[in-house]
Lab assay of single mutants.
Amino acid sequence: THFTSQQLQELEATFQRNHYPDMSTREEIAVWTNLTEARVRVWFKNRRAKWR
């Protein structure tokens, strides 16, 4: 999946605040970024792996 810079900005900003967002937070992010909750969940999983 290719993310727009706007989507990445929103995802990264949320990641800085919370590395493990809950389901409702992921659903909110999905609405803001026009992505599915599953895409958001996978992005956070991959981002945490990169962060370690």
Rank of each mutant, 00 (worst) to 15 (best):
F15N: 01
T14Q: 15
F44Y: 07
H19F: 06
W43N: 00
T33V: 11
Q6E: 12
A30M: 03
H19Q: 11
T25Q: 14
A38W: 13
E37N: 04
H2Y: 12
S5T: 12
A38C: 10
W43G: 00
T4D: 06
L35Q: 07
V40H: 00
A38I: 12
N18R: 03
E37L: 05
E10K: 15
A30T: 02
F3N: 03
A38T: 09
E37M: 05
R47K: 05
A38Y: 14
A38K: 12
L8G: 02
W43H: 00
R52F: 11
F15V: 01
A49F: 07
T36P: 07
E10M: 15
F44T: 00
F44D: 00
R26G: 01
Q16Y: 08
P21H: 01
A49L: 09
T1P: 12
N46M: 14
H19E: 03
H19N: 05
R52S: 07
W32R: 15
Y20V: 04
N46E: 13
T36Q: 04
T14F: 15
T36Y: 03
L35K: 05
F15E: 01
A30Y: 03
N34Q: 10
W32G: 11
Q7D: 02
T36V: 04
T25H: 06
V31E: 13
L8E: 10
Y20D: 04
T14A: 15
N46H: 12
I29V: 06
E27D: 06
T33N: 07
Y20Q: 03
R52P: 05
E37C: 05
Y20P: 01
A49E: 10
T36A: 05
H2L: 10
A13I: 10
T25W: 06
Q7L: 06
R17V: 10
L8T: 06
M23V: 08
E37K: 03
L11N: 01
V40D: 00
R26H: 02
Q7K: 04
W51M: 12
H2A: 11
A38Q: 11
A13W: 12
L11C: 03
T33W: 08
K50G: 07
M23N: 06
E28G: 06
A49K: 14
T14G: 10
S5V: 12
A38L: 14
R26L: 10
H19V: 04
N18F: 06
D22G: 06
E28D: 09
R17A: 09
Q16V: 08
M23T: 08
T14K: 10
R26A: 03
N34L: 06
T25N: 05
R48G: 01
R48C: 02
F15T: 03
Q7C: 06
K50P: 03
T36C: 06
L35T: 13
F15Q: 01
T1S: 10
P21T: 02
T36F: 04
P21N: 01
R47W: 04
W51R: 05
R26E: 01
R47G: 03
T4H: 04
L35A: 08
W32E: 12
F44K: 00
H2R: 13
Q7V: 09
Q7E: 03
Y20R: 05
R52K: 11
Q9E: 11
A49T: 07
F44H: 00
A49V: 08
E27Q: 14
T1D: 11
D22W: 03
W51Q: 08
L35H: 04
A13Q: 09
R52L: 13
L11R: 00
T1I: 11
P21W: 05
Q7H: 04
S5P: 13
F3K: 04
T14Y: 15
E37T: 05
W43M: 00
R26M: 10
T4P: 03
T1Y: 13
R41Q: 07
R26Q: 03
